[in-house]
Amino acid sequence: MFYKDDRLALFIDGSNLHAAAKSLGFDLDYKLLRQEFERRGKLIRAYYYTALLESEEYSPIRPLIDWLNYNGYTIVTKPAREYTDSMGRRRVKGNMDIELAVDAMELAPRLDHAVLFSGDGDFRPLVEALQRQGVRVSVVSTMRSQPPMIADELRRQADNFIELDALRDIVGRPPREPREPAPAPTTET
């Protein structure tokens, strides 16, 4: 489904991709991910979308965002909103669907192939709209998690479905060795 002269772009729904990889038990190496798709065609853009909590002084995602920004990814963020649900639990809402859809539609006239890293069924109309403009669309997510992370309607709409688990050996980080606890200090008498 990929041709060497394809102009392609990656559209990464950060929280969705992270959840899918985590459900499969591995971490992504974003350097290898970018290299893999540079190998598959002429990579025009690699977008990464995520919402950030502004109320937190330090966000655990900040180092990843900074690294991606310095390594060829276009980062799109917006503030996440905190709210309390009907059960009194603190929740965070930070949907990036509109930003991703607008960028994909703006770039579509300069693309042959769009690769969407998300299983969110809300993207089915976007995939259909890109296809009407002559852009082939591959969707990367997983059916191997319980429950599957890919919405059936999105998988059916896409020109090509790429199982994330099949990319594990190409774009996955090797598991980290557990750290040894520091030896307890000894006192000599």
Results as ranks from 00 to 15, higher is better:
R45N: 09
G121E: 06
N69S: 11
R91E: 13
E36R: 13
Q157C: 08
A46I: 03
S145E: 09
A51Y: 01
D122T: 06
M1Y: 09
R155N: 12
V76D: 10
D5Y: 12
F117T: 07
Y83K: 13
H18I: 14
F123M: 02
A20W: 09
R124W: 05
R156W: 11
Y3S: 13
Q146T: 15
M87Y: 15
L130H: 03
R124K: 13
P181A: 09
A166Q: 11
W67C: 08
T84L: 11
L43A: 07
Y47C: 04
F161Y: 02
V115M: 00
S86T: 14
L24Y: 01
R155P: 08
T186E: 13
P183N: 06
P181C: 08
D122E: 08
E128R: 10
A46E: 03
D103I: 03
A9Q: 06
R40G: 08
V115E: 04
V140W: 01
K93Y: 07
K22T: 15
K31C: 11
N95L: 05
R110P: 07
Y73L: 01
R168W: 05
E38I: 11
M143L: 15
L43G: 00
I98R: 07
V140Y: 01
D13N: 09
A9W: 05
R62M: 14
E57G: 14
R155K: 14
E106H: 12
S86Y: 15
Y3N: 14
E99W: 10
R173Q: 14
L154W: 00
Y48W: 05
M1V: 12
I44D: 10
Q35G: 10
S141G: 09
D6L: 02
L154M: 06
I12V: 04
V140A: 01
A184N: 12
S59D: 13
D97F: 01
L33G: 01
Y48R: 02
Y73A: 02
P175I: 04
A166D: 11
V76H: 08
G25F: 06
A21I: 03
S55N: 14
M143E: 15
I44T: 11
R173T: 12
D5W: 10
T187D: 14
E56H: 15
V92I: 12
F123V: 04
L130W: 01
E54I: 12
Y49V: 02
K93F: 07
L33N: 01
D29K: 04
A151V: 05
P175R: 06
I61F: 06
I98M: 09
P148G: 06
G119L: 03
R110Y: 14
D27W: 12
F2C: 07
K31Y: 09
Y70G: 15
Y30F: 07
L126M: 05
L154K: 04
L126E: 06
G72I: 00
Y58C: 15
P109K: 04
Y73E: 01
L68A: 03
R132Y: 09
F37A: 02
I75L: 02
R90W: 12
G172V: 05
N160Y: 12
T186D: 13
E188D: 14
L111V: 05
V115P: 00
S141M: 04
A104F: 05
R155H: 11
L28Y: 02
G88L: 07
A108E: 04
K31M: 13
L126W: 00
A166V: 09
P178W: 05
L43P: 00
P183K: 07
D97L: 03
